[in-house]
């Protein structure tokens, strides 16, 4: 153990700083939503009627909306990130590999708000005129039809947010999968080749070998999707009505309603506190998800940060 005093003071300073940072992040949320939660807590997580001017605070649609958006964007990000991870490890010539790895890092480097603006001005109008009309036709199908049933096509809708979000979270999952892929023991790979296996057999073996890593990477990416704010707010359409399991509808999430309403909410103390309580719920949801993901893939924190 390091006994040197100077170093201990330095370390203690860092520790105190981290603790203070955590406290600053969490304590104001608790203090400023405590009385709201006592009064409206049950309503907030059970009703979907959101009408702050009348002090009606049913926020279940935001919670469900968050889960809905997270689910779909994660589902789309999964093949994207596995493909990119394979391209960056196994399938490309060496120079292309570094290029792909670099470009993947670039995806993570572009700010959320820029994705949001690009989505708003470029991507959403394009989808609304080319892709969405076809999807609307699917609404007549049984069961999955509900995903696409809407009265009017809106460029800003759940699907637009989901598509952009899935691109944004792909680098995190890619980095973790890539990391896991490179850690597969070399002799295992050689054994497959020695048995007459093809590259394809190697890929299959590797992917099944790092199954838990892939799941962990995907869950961490889902965590990012859950807390993503700017792009979602700009693209989801911000409809605070009851939740519908729909992709072409305008919707909302916890982060989008907070980003949208917090400023005006300050006129009504309970409104602001309701949004604060929603953020608290978001943190709890994210922590549960991450705790689950961490248990699956310990020691992946490094890759996840460097993404």
């Amino acid at each position: 153990m390091l006994r040197e005093r100077k170093l201990r003071i330095i370390a203690l300073f860092g520790f105190a700083g981290l603790i203070v940072a955590v406290l600053i992040l969490v304590v104001p949320l608790i203090i400023n939503s405590y009385d709201f939660l006592l009064k409206y807590g049950k309503e907030l997580i059970s009703s979907m009627n959101w009408n702050p001017p009348q002090n009606v605070y049913g926020g279940l649609q935001f919670i469900l909306g968050t889960l809905w958006v997270t689910f779909w964007s994660t589902l789309i990000a999964m093949p994207l990130s596995i493909s990119l991870a394979l391209l960056a490890t196994e399938l490309s010539p060496k120079r292309l590999k570094t290029l792909i790895a670099g470009l993947t890092d670039l995806i993570a480097a572009i700010p959320s708000v820029v994705y949001g603006y690009w989505g708003l001005v470029v991507f959403a109008p394009l989808l609304a005129t080319t892709v969405y009309p076809y999807l609307l036709n699917l609404s007549k199908l049984p069961i999955i039809g509900i995903l696409f049933s809407t009265s009017v096509i809106s460029p800003q809708c759940v699907l637009t947010a989901v598509l952009v979000l899935s691109l944004m979270i792909t680098p995190y999952a890619t980095a973790i999968i890539r990391n896991g892929y490179e850690m597969v023991p070399k002799d295992l790979v050689e054994a497959v080749y020695a048995l007459g296996g093809t590259k394809w057999d190697v890929i299959k073996m590797n992917l099944s070998y790092i199954k838990s890593t892939i799941i962990a990477g995907v869950i961490i990416a889902a965590g990012r999707a859950m807390g993503e704010t700017m792009a979602v707010t700009m693209l989801i359409g911000n409809n605070v009505g009851p939740f519908k399991p729909c992709l072409l509808c305008r919707g909302s999430t916890i982060t989008s309603v907070v980003a949208n309403e917090f400023e005006e909410a300050l006129l009504n103390p309970y409104h602001a506190k309701a949004l604060t309580a929603l953020i608290l719920i978001l943190i709890i949801m994210g922590s549960l998800l991450l705790a689950f993901g961490r248990r699956l893939g310990k020691k992946l924190v490094e890759a996840e940060i460097i993404a």
Partner: peptide, 21 residues
Amino acid sequence: ELASTLVEVPTITAGISIYWL
């Protein structure tokens, strides 16, 4: 543990907390 958890906290949280604080 704290540092790797802080990285994952949605960034809007900081805005809301500092607003109140």
